[in-house]
Amino acid sequence: MSTDTSPPVIVIGGGQAGLATAHVARALGLEPLVLEAADRPAGSWPHYYDSLTLFSPARRSALPGLPFPGDPDGYPGRDEVVAYLGDYAARLDADIRTGHRVERVAAGPDGFEVVTTGGEGFAAPMVVAATGAFSRPHRPRPPGLETFTGEVLHSAGYRSPEGFEGRRVVIVGGGNSAVQIGAELAAVARVTLATRRPLRFLAQKVLGRDMHLWLAWTGLDSAGWARPLLTGGKGTPVFDTGAYRAQIATGNPDRRPLFTRLDGDHVAWSDGARERVDAVLLATGYRADVDYLGGLGALDEAGRPLHRGGVSTTRPGLGYVGLEWQRSFASATLRGVGADARHVLTRLLGQTRGR
């Protein structure tokens, strides 16, 4: 294994979390090495569905050091985010190497050794895993899935309504992405949102201001203790201008309790009814893609990072940026990764300076 000149910190992932971490590292006087598996530093954004728009306005969707262009009160789309990340990376004074997929991270004499699938090796006293929470689609297995003869796909594989015309579609999940996709598909198909809990609509704007601004002003945006307030209650929270609630009220898409099982080309609903279905779309979220840390003892039995606020509780010098609810409601968002990156790097520097 060839070993490159050792940087002070290796950042794994060149999406929003990795780029924000590189920016913060430079501000702290470090020269980071960013290893990105794809051919450009844009994270998962190029792979999301075509009509995806942010749930927060542009003024609250920027990485540190570069405002999001365009209407500050508008809601940027997927391609705008991709372009923004590309511009952000080009402005960074950082060594960003695309086409470098990390295969494993091992303990080294001075911290960590990072090996890519191409066989290249790098060493550093600090490593930040910034592959985020959107790299690995979570695909639960509903009862009877092995017998279902229709199409099954995750929202990660959904692009547009094309090909769904006239079909019967059940979407499993009730977050903003599920509702956004359901509303879009309802223009060409018959759609049901199947959820464990009812939908709980939260006003996108209050007194003319976006809810995300209120969250920032009140401190709830960055308060870990606020999680029960934002995700608890009697329903799955969905930010809404009123359009989603109105469309669901028409009955397409409709919302039903999660089905009890799949059977052939049918679903069995909780009220005992059976219905033929053409496709099941799993809008069931993602899990952190950090298998490359498996040999470090840094993950629990389910493969989840063992950390406190993004700082590993088992490996000094190891941190994370971009995990959902890592420190706050905003942690896995464009607006939240910068603050988390500063928190993590400051603490990692404190751990490693005594080595």
Rank of each mutant, 00 (worst) to 15 (best):
A279P: 04
A268K: 15
W269L: 00
G264K: 00
A223T: 12
A223N: 15
K234D: 15
T260I: 06
V290R: 00
F239P: 12
D221M: 15
Y244W: 11
E275C: 05
A279L: 05
W269F: 02
A279S: 07
I248C: 12
R274G: 03
G297W: 04
P237F: 08
V290L: 01
W269R: 04
T241G: 14
L258C: 12
A298T: 05
H266A: 14
G242D: 07
D300H: 08
R276D: 10
G242N: 04
R255C: 14
H307G: 04
A283D: 05
L229D: 02
T284K: 00
L306N: 08
H307Y: 07
W225S: 12
W225E: 13
V277A: 02
A302I: 12
T231M: 15
Y244R: 03
E301R: 14
L262R: 05
L306T: 09
F239A: 15
A283F: 08
T284Y: 05
A302E: 14
G224V: 01
A246Y: 06
N252V: 04
A243W: 11
R261V: 00
Y292H: 10
G235H: 07
D265N: 12
G251W: 03
A246V: 10
L281N: 02
D254N: 13
L299Q: 03
L306C: 11
A226L: 07
L229Q: 02
A283S: 13
A273M: 09
D291I: 07
G251F: 05
W225R: 11
D263N: 07
H266S: 13
G235I: 10
R255H: 14
Y244P: 00
P257Y: 10
P305K: 01
P305M: 03
R276Q: 14
G251T: 07
R255Y: 12
R261I: 04
L282G: 06
Y292S: 08
L296D: 01
R276G: 10
A249W: 06
D254I: 13
G285F: 03
R308Q: 13
L230K: 08
D278H: 02
G251R: 03
L281W: 06
R276F: 10
D240Q: 09
L293G: 00
A246H: 02
L306I: 10
T231S: 15
Y244I: 13
W269Y: 01
D300I: 09
K234N: 15
D254Q: 15
A298R: 02
L230C: 08
A268P: 10
T236A: 07
D265C: 07
P253Q: 02
D271R: 01
G264R: 00
S270R: 12
G264S: 01
S222D: 11
V238C: 06
R256V: 10
G233N: 04
E301C: 13
V290Y: 03
P305D: 02
L262G: 08
D291T: 12
A298W: 02
D278Q: 06
L296F: 06
T236M: 08
R274K: 09
R308H: 11
V277C: 02
R261D: 09
P257H: 05
G272P: 04
S270L: 11
R245D: 08
R245I: 05
G242I: 06
Q247C: 06
Q247E: 05
L258V: 14
A279D: 01
R274S: 08
D291W: 11
R304W: 13
T231K: 14
L258H: 13
L262I: 03
W225H: 13
V280H: 01
T260K: 09
L229C: 02
Q247Y: 05
P228E: 00
W225M: 11
D291E: 15
N252S: 03
R245A: 10
